[in-house]
Nucleic acid binder design. Structure first.
Length: 719
DNA sequence: TAACATTCCGTTTTT
DNA sequence: CGGAATGTTA
């Protein structure tokens, strides 16, 4: 009685999909069909009548993952999935808080601050309170607030042991007051508020506990403590929680992810059996063997070994470059060869690096070679200045107490409202503990400033009046036109792309409205379309790169590559200090997290993997000399193949000396060596070529620049 | 208020 | 070195 839906699942996948009403931990290795298992289980539960769509809550970490699940699910199930709660933690918390905003102590139209908005709000608060930003960097205050919220700690509960932490706790309290006055919540607040709502309100809690018989969690290793507590609360004692994750791919500890949640889950939910998905459908054997060998060096693993039914494939290619430039040149050459001779699409190749700074030289080299490439990780659509400005007008229409929105646009475009006017407004506002809007409308100001401010107030009010009841895209057009934003950007010649983005924003509004109407039909208690759109803008900031289409090489950090796969992967900068990053050495389990990151990088490759490192690299405007990453030495040598053109045969056995490699065993010269020349003085050896009597070395002299010298003739001595 | 100069800083990042 | 953020001047 196997349904077609279950056909093709391997035994472990099948076991996971068809589990009865019990909580389970699914250890899903990279490329093991995790998303398929999740979606098939949901479909199976519904199809067999074990659950109705409204009895299911599925939570993911990113919007992308949520969307993918939704798409796959609707392809599997003919029926509408209305009533099912599927989304990110933040999205679901938002939904809960909208539905019960009164019980949660929030205004119906509360707005959501993204991290940038939050940062601005904190800086604003500190300025009003005259806090020394040298002593209390706003970034640190933000981190303090967020990590406390993620630990479930309110300002009043923070343990303070000195004047410094007391001040931080004080700022935390003041910040929360400010948010409450303005009717805004930050990301962490969405979760904490939602957690507190459920924990305080027994009726509500029991209602949802009864409703969600089945809870499914994706990327469980990335959950933080608050998210886990939220899940536990929601699950109660009767829900079956299906947690899917991979402890070996936990790479977000630095932002609060707590892998320990996996062990806690086993304990707290009395998990009897952990299902391991270890068959990999992505990579060839050599790549998996390398990944397994590497990750086995970590302690504290739940334990898992990937395998494939496919062959071992090609060896992993290792390239040792003399410099970052040469490394880039090698990669570009190789990319071109793969593309031209083996007709591999550029989009099937990824160029990965540990830190964003590394992309510059790679981009530069690619650009000069005329190879199309696409870098992931820039500004996202809804984070752009012009978009934020436009949305600020809409936010003010929805909620005029949003001081952050008001400050962003009260004088943009310029309306003759300068700093001194704003200071007057701010002083009065903090004095009376009311919003800037309330001060502005109360007639405290006088003179020309008052006239200008009143004109602004009237502008917003007239916009609000006109927009009420209009379709979203018409509201957007009206606001862009009457705020003067459109004209402002049209008049500026250097900002043509901003005009395009604003047009795109109108487009986005139209698209959003169409999708939202369908959703609203199925669920009546959804907010109005404007609030929903503003929420969407905060919670889903959009793609990192707007321009899609043309075949292009994919450039990104290893973090950004998680979840993706490519035919060929180039992993660059495998040097101690860079990967593993030197800062990771000070952190508890820092190197283990870096190793997991390396594991993620390796397992992105389907067929071909290149690992490269450079003996010298330009960093912070200075040449730095590095040695091969320890991670290279942790890979079995029989899986590797050195591909340096100059490598002498004896180096085909990979060997990464702790000292930068000599070319000849009998040569005293190595890259990075300090040398002395009778005429040019002190310098550093940066490159070499040839051998024997033809050997030449490149030396960077501190006084006389960089020169090539024939070793046989130059009177060079080690220094 | 905008253009220009200066200073600071430098892992990874989604919501 | 290069950018972002802050400070200074016309």
């Amino acid at each position: 009685m196997t349904t077609p839906m279950l056909a093709g699942l391997n035994p472990e996948q099948l076991e996971a999909v068809t589990l009865a009403h019990e909580s389970a931990l699914i250890l899903a290795g990279a490329g093991s069909g995790k998303t398929r298992v999740l979606t098939t289980r949901i479909a199976h539960l519904i199809q067999t009548g074990q659950a109705s769509p409204q009895g299911i809550l599925a939570v993911t970490f990113t919007n992308k993952a949520a969307k993918e699940m939704l798409v796959r699910l609707s392809a599997m199930l003919p029926i509408n999935i209305r009533g099912m709660w599927m989304g990110t933690f933040h999205g679901l918390c938002n939904r809960l808080l909208r539905a019960h905003h009164h019980d949660a102590g929030l205004p119906a139209l509360f707005q959501i601050l993204d991290s940038g908005d939050q940062f601005a709000a904190i800086k604003r608060l500190m300025k009003i309170q005259n806090v020394d930003v040298e002593k209390y960097p706003p970034k640190q205050v933000q981190y303090f607030i967020n990590s406390n919220k993620e630990a479930g700690t309110r300002a009043s509960q923070v343990e303070t042991y000195d004047s410094f932490t007391r001040k931080l706790a004080e700022l935390y309290a003041a910040y929360d007051d400010q948010c409450n006055r303005e009717g805004v919540v930050d990301f962490a607040e969405l979760l904490l508020r939602s957690y507190e709502l459920l924990s305080r309100n027994e009726l509500l809690r029991e209602h949802y506990q009864r409703r969600f018989k089945y809870i499914l969690v994706d990327e469980f290793q990335d959950t933080n403590r608050l998210q886990y507590a939220w899940l536990k609360l929601l699950a109660g004692t009767h829900s079956a929680v299906f947690a899917v994750g991979d402890d070996d791919q936990s790479i977000y500890a630095f932002r609060g992810a707590h892998v320990g949640n996996m062990r806690d889950f086993e304990r707290d939910f009395g998990i009897l059996k952990v299902i391991k998905l270890e068959q990999n459908y992505r990579s060839h054997g050599n790549i998996l063997d390398a990944a397994n060998a590497l990750i086995s060096q970590n302690s504290e693993r739940l334990g898992k070994n990937l395998w494939t039914s496919e062959g071992s494939g090609e060896p992993i290619r290792v390239y040792e470059a003399s410099s970052d430039q040469e490394e880039a040149a090698f990669i570009v050459d190789e990319v071109r060869t793969l593309h031209d001779n083996e007709s591999m699409p550029l989009s099937e190749m990824a160029l990965l690096y540990r830190s964003n700074a590394q992309s510059r030289i790679l981009e530069h080299t690619l650009f000069n070679a005329g190879i199309p490439y696409k870098v992931y990780g820039g500004l996202r659509f809804f984070e752009r200045q012009e978009i934020k400005h436009a949305l600020a007008y809409l936010r003010l229409i929805a909620n005029s107490n949003d001081d952050g929105a008001l400050l962003r646009v009260i004088n943009f475009p310029v309306r003759g409202i300068g700093n001194r006017t704003l200071e007057q407004l701010q002083d009065a506002a903090s004095q009376q503990q009311i919003s800037l809007w309330q001060v502005a409308t109360s007639g405290t100001l006088s003179g020309k400033a008052a006239t200008n401010v009143m004109a602004f107030i009237r502008l917003i009010e007239s916009m609000r009046e006109t927009c009420t009841g209009l379709p979203l895209q018409e509201q957007m057009e009206h606001v862009l036109e009457h705020s003067g934003l459109a004209a402002h950007y049209q008049n500026s010649k250097s900002e043509a792309d901003r005009v395009e983005n604003l047009d795109e924003l109108i487009n986005a509004a139209t698209l959003f409205t169409n999708e939202y109407e369908i959703l609203r039909d199925s669920d009546a208690d959804q907010p109005d379309v404007l609030t929903a759109f503003l929420t969407h803008a905060s919670l889903e900031a959009g793609e990192h790169q707007a321009i899609a289409g043309a075949d292009a090489l994919q450039l990104m950090t290893v973090h950004a590559a998680k979840g993706l796969e490519f035919q060929s992967v180039f992993l660059s900068g495998l040097e101690e200090g860079l990967f593993p990053h030197e800062q990771s050495r000070n952190e508890a389990d820092g190197v283990e997290e870096e190793r997991r990151l390396m594991y993620v990088a390796i397992t992105r490759a389907r067929r071909r993997l290149y690992l490269s490192f450079a003996q010298s690299r330009m960093l912070h405007g200075q040449v730095r000399y590095g040695i091969a990453s320890r991670f290279l030495k942790e890979l079995p040598t029989e899986l590797l193949k050195r591909v340096n053109s100059w490598a002498s045969p004896r180096y085909s056995e990979p060997e990464f000396s702790s000292k930068p490699a000599n070319r000849n065993d009998d040569s005293p010269w190595y890259i990075g060596q300090n040398v002395m020349h009778p005429k040019f003085g002190a310098g550093v050896l940066v490159n070499y070529e040839g051998s024997g009597s033809d050997a030449r070395v490149q030396v960077s002299f501190s006084q006389s620049g960089t020169k090539w010298l024939a070793l046989e003739y130059a009177k060079l001595v080690p220094a």
